[in-house]
Amino acid sequence: MSESPRQSARPSPRVTAKDVARASGVSQTTVSFVLNGAAGHVSQETRERVREAARTLDYVPNGSAQALRKGASRIVLLNVEGVPTGSGLGSYIRGLDAELASHQHVLLVLHGHLSSQALSDVAQAVSARAVIDLGDAGHADALATGLGASLTAFSAQADVPVQYLVERGHRHIATVLPDTAELQTLAGLRERLMWQAAHTAGLADCPTLVLPGDPEAAGQRLRTFRAEHPDVTALAAYNDDLALVTLAAMRHLGLRAPQDLAVIGFDDTPHGALFSPALTTVRLDAESLGRIAARHALGLPTAGLAPEPARVIVRQSG
């Protein structure tokens, strides 16, 4: 005896936050923030895209997802996966922690490889007041802009190394980025901003050199790059660590800085001054960015917390 249509019918699969994330091109964490009213660090465009995807898919949040952002604790989570440890990150965390403490909140820093779902589970378990996920593409712009300032503000800081090199007569500047997968989100943002800065400065182009961490392998990559871009006279690295790899790669090739290639880093880590030649770099007021992030996380005004402009620390390499 055949089944009736009613007996054989199967319910449609339930739409999940993962489906909304896939449709809107963001992480599940970002979806949770947007749909639970805690997305102050997420751009308006991203929020609208997530909400539209949820409407289109007829997504209904479940009870546990709603509870994610309704906790009453004074804990703020910071996920730093994929962010290079250095002076900038350390200062950012110090500023974030100090500002939260002044408002009777506690900072909990998470390291390691956490999935979006795992991060959401942790936030729910501690009833987190807010989550700042620096490992999420949705937060990359937020980190760079101080969580709420316009992209133009950070673009002005990204302009600093380009303007410095242009003032020294360089018209062909390349950006040096890492080949580490964990850093691709922030590295991609830096690449876009450097390209914008080069364009604003009237430069014809700003090619990208991707270097591995091993100096010998980096030297081989640099040799190929110079053959393809013989006009490049200066390299603006993603951070100080990569700038030092660049200088080591140049040494393997018998190149001198700044005579053959000028090199400038970003972040002003202490060991840059110990290298020979000492590394020219860019110093950021990351502590103020951390304080601003704390204010945004707590929904407080940020008046009076504008970071100092980035500035070049001139040494020997550039």
Rank of each mutant, 00 (worst) to 15 (best):
G299C: 11
L203C: 09
A293S: 05
A149P: 01
F275L: 13
G71Q: 04
S73M: 03
H41Q: 13
G138N: 12
E48H: 05
E99R: 00
L189G: 09
A248K: 10
E99D: 13
P212K: 14
Q316T: 11
L222K: 13
H103V: 02
E99A: 03
R47E: 10
R94T: 12
R49Y: 01
G40Y: 02
D285R: 06
L261W: 04
S120A: 10
L242D: 00
A125Y: 15
Y92Q: 00
G95T: 00
R6K: 13
R10I: 06
A306N: 04
A236N: 11
A273G: 09
D285N: 10
A278R: 08
G202V: 15
H199V: 13
V312N: 01
T152W: 04
G86E: 04
R94L: 12
I173E: 04
L203T: 12
A286M: 03
G304A: 14
G95Q: 01
A23N: 07
V76M: 00
V131M: 13
G272N: 06
G71R: 04
V31P: 10
A21H: 14
A54R: 00
L222T: 11
L96A: 09
L35W: 14
P11Q: 14
A217T: 13
Y92N: 03
A123C: 11
R94S: 07
S115L: 11
N62F: 04
V50H: 09
L183H: 12
A98V: 05
L183Y: 07
L186N: 13
L151N: 02
E308Q: 08
P13Y: 12
S120G: 06
L35N: 09
H296G: 09
R221Y: 00
R283C: 04
T233V: 14
Y164K: 00
P277Y: 04
D179T: 14
G202S: 06
A297T: 12
S91Q: 09
Q163G: 12
R10S: 10
L165Y: 02
Q316I: 08
S27K: 06
C206A: 06
N239K: 15
H105G: 05
H252A: 11
A174M: 11
A54Y: 01
R22C: 01
A23E: 12
P207R: 15
G90V: 14
T208L: 15
R47H: 12
T185R: 12
L77K: 00
L211A: 05
Q184P: 03
G63I: 10
T281Q: 02
V314K: 03
D159I: 13
A67G: 03
G135K: 08
I292M: 10
A306C: 05
P61S: 06
D268G: 02
